[in-house]
Design a protein around this nucleic acid. Structure first.
Lengths: 196, 196
DNA sequence: GTCGGGACTAGAACGTGTTCTAGTCTTGGC
DNA sequence: GCCAAGACTAGAACACGTTCTAGTCCCGAC
């Protein structure tokens, strides 16, 4: 995800946490533009330069925050598995949960997704991590009754649709209902043939 | 696409063209970061402020350039329709042509796609235009032998996958072969059930 | 304990996208 | 032909991400 989270001392890990928290707070209230590095520093009680010791850029910082977010989602889905009789329902349920979480914090979502899209060395590893997590979640929702090869293909395709629809929502060219629709459509197109 | 391209005088349209051309040149040689507004202005023989009369931001400018690019693609595909015996083949062919064009100009693609992803009022309209164009192209490739409702759904889903895979390539977390693979996978998942 | 290295701090400095200003040039309506 | 409106120009000014500097603090090795 990013440089050696494991090799930090306790106080360093705490500092890193405080920085992320500050960024999340600012992002939640005003979106991407409101996350200004000087403010993050002040609000986290840390010098500006110190942030850059932990994150290579503003985008890296916000992307790292999104990584934590998706990890939370994965944990929650693990604790309370997706509801639904058919596989299609379960997948829909998981995707809906993911989007609902973002719907509650639209400004913050805009901030983290924007960062995630940035071409930035630091952000790139977070992109992979988010994508991997989402793939795991989807894969679990699909269950074990599938040809593994098909499973991989289906999760990838659904992941792409989720990602792309999300961008559409964040950038304001489609409402959240549309995102839900597109996800449902794709889910059915991909899975129904398997008689889920 | 952007503010009233239709209401420009001849010389204004020419100026706008020169600006886009300058941006494309710079982008082709050095990617997003190399497209610097002062350089674009100089290179287009125009004052910096003038660019902002035509485009609301750097991202809007580059996104507008991508709109032209996709229009070109649509025209080319219209002139030489996609090859292939099966529908799946034709769709693959179209998608491949789209990605090959970008593969030839990786730096420029990075610039244009990065801009397209930006949350920016000006860029947003370009995003819709690109998406609409891509949908039309895919729709034509699919042909008229489908239930129209299915057609709409399939093109949307494939469009999402194309978009998302493209981002993956531009941001460097997957090679171009992988993009091709993912597109093929999605194409088969979505279309094969229709016995194409 | 103390010494050395690295992490932290405050703040200046820099680069580039964007906006502003003041003045000039173009153009369409009369 | 002339005039007002508004488009264009050069360049300064501004905002914010990022980097740099100089000095201080902390911590592990001895």
């Amino acid at each position: 995800m990013d440089a050696d989270t494991t090799t930090l001392t306790r106080s360093q890990a705490a500092r890193r946490e405080r920085v992320i928290r500050a960024a999340l707070d600012l992002g939640a209230s005003g979106g991407y533009d409101a996350v200004q590095m000087r403010d993050v520093a002040t609000s986290a009680g840390v010098a500006l330069g110190t942030i850059y010791r932990y994150f290579s850029s503003k985008d890296h910082l916000l992307a790292a925050a999104m990584v934590e977010w998706t990890h939370d989602l994965e944990r929650r889905v693990g604790q309370r598995p997706p509801k639904g009789d058919t596989i299609t329902d379960r997948v829909s349920d998981v995707l809906r949960r993911a989007t609902r979480a973002m719907e509650k914090e639209p400004k913050l979502s805009e901030a983290v997704v924007t960062a995630l899209l940035s071409p930035d060395r630091g952000a790139a590893s977070c992109q992979e991590e988010v994508s991997a997590t989402m793939t795991r979640i989807l894969s679990t929702a699909l269950g074990d009754d599938f040809d593994p090869a098909f499973k991989v293909q289906a999760t990838r395709t659904l992941g792409h649709v989720w990602f792309s629809a999300l961008i559409g929502w964040v950038n304001g060219w489609s409402g959240m209902e549309k995102v839900g629709d597109e996800l449902d459509i794709a889910t059915h197109l991909v899975l129904d043939q398997y008689g889920a």
